[in-house]
């Protein structure tokens, strides 16, 4: 976040001290057999942030989460939560972590109330008010049977179960999967509700870029087993730019520039999506002698798709060489 101009009248600013990170991942590498899932991932999540974890399916997001929660072992590297090694998290530490895995699993035979009782028995810091508030938010009553709930209601129940112990760290793995828009909105509101208390951290993975844009302070992007971005949402948007180059005749072949994500050539135009634009790259674009260069503002979703999608030249919707 930039703070280039200090305002004349100082509003009350509260600078949080640089505290030790809540989640610390160092050079994490994970193999399943000989298949590499995550390669040399290093990430630290500071206290009090809302951290979005992005990446295409199957790129290792859920695996990473499981590893730093101590539910799977890393092949190489180490992960820590609250400064403690993930592989030996004591129960007191687990009580401070709320984990909502993908799938929103509940024990179908329990009623909503019984689910609450079961969960509450494990957490001394259980807050029944929060539990009931979230339930009401999702229109759930105690007598409902968990097995009869819709996907969205189940998500609400799981969210209530996860939020009620007031965890310091909230880990959500694709929490909006399968939710209708109303449930999704409720989910976002609940996430923001959590941050009412300072020093609460949320680490969540998602495919819904618009939601990520709303709530995340920072994002980390996992692309091809490797962490490629770790920055604020704003920075990410700013660093990925698209340019439309118009030519009088057929456009020249796509130039080899570093950070080129996508290119699209048509009769008279060439559209280039570039990450980390530098003046040097700009001059290279100008050197192609186009009639005009027009910068295009991208939505976060478009930027993200270009970032993690297939590289190279595109013709309409498909990859591959132009057919002429």
């Amino acid at each position: 976040m930039e703070n280039s101009a200090k305002p004349n009248q100082q509003p009350e600013e509260k600078m949080s001290e640089p505290a030790s990170p809540v989640i610390q991942i160092d050079h994490l590498t994970k193999y399943y057999g000989t298949r590499e899932i995550v390669s040399d991932l290093s990430l630290s999540v500071p206290k009090g942030t809302i951290y979005g974890f992005l990446g295409r399916n199957g790129m290792g997001k859920t695996t990473t989460i499981r590893i730093f929660l101590g539910l799977e072992d890393p092949t190489r590297g180490s992960t820590k939560v609250f400064g403690l090694d993930s592989r030996s998290l004591p129960p007191e530490a687990r009580a401070r972590i709320g984990y909502l895995p993908e799938g929103h699993h509940v024990y179908g035979w329990m009623t909503v109330k019984e689910c609450g009782q079961f969960q509450a028995s494990y957490f001394p810091a259980w807050n029944q008010d929060i539990f009931e508030t979230v339930l009401t938010h999702f229109r759930l009553t105690s007598k409902m049977k968990a097995g009869h709930l819709s996907r969205g209601q189940r998500a609400g129940l799981c969210l209530a179960l996860t939020l009620a112990p007031e965890p310091e760290l909230l880990v959500l793995d694709d929490p909006a999967l399968g939710l209708d828009p109303v449930a999704r909105r409720s989910l976002l509101q609940s996430m923001l509700y959590v941050t009412r208390k300072a020093d609460r951290t949320i680490f969540f993975s998602s495919h819904l870029l618009s939601d990520v844009e709303r709530v995340a302070d920072r994002i980390a992007v996992l692309d091809g087993k490797v962490l490629r971005a770790d920055c604020s949402v704003e920075t990410f948007r700013r660093q990925i730019r698209q340019f439309i180059l118009k030519f009088r005749d057929a456009p020249p072949p796509t130039p080899e520039i570093p950070g080129l994500l996508e290119s699209f050539r048509s009769d008279r135009e060439m559209a280039l999506t570039v990450a980390n634009i530098t003046p040097e790259i700009e001059s290279r674009l100008e050197a192609l002698q186009p009639a005009s260069i027009e910068p295009v503002d991208l939505t976060l979703e478009d930027a993200f798709i270009s970032y993690v999608g297939e590289r190279g030249e595109k013709t309409f919707f498909m990859n591959g060489k132009e057919t002429k």
Partner: peptide, 26 residues
């Protein structure tokens, strides 16, 4: 922030820029 369902930091940033521009004062 809660009524718009956005991160409070985003609202804070908007306020700050407007304060800087002189439209708002704290």
């Amino acid at each position: 922030a809660e009524s718009l369902v956005v991160n409070p930091n985003t609202v804070a940033r908007a306020y700050q820029e407007l304060i800087r521009d002189g439209l708002l004062e704290s």
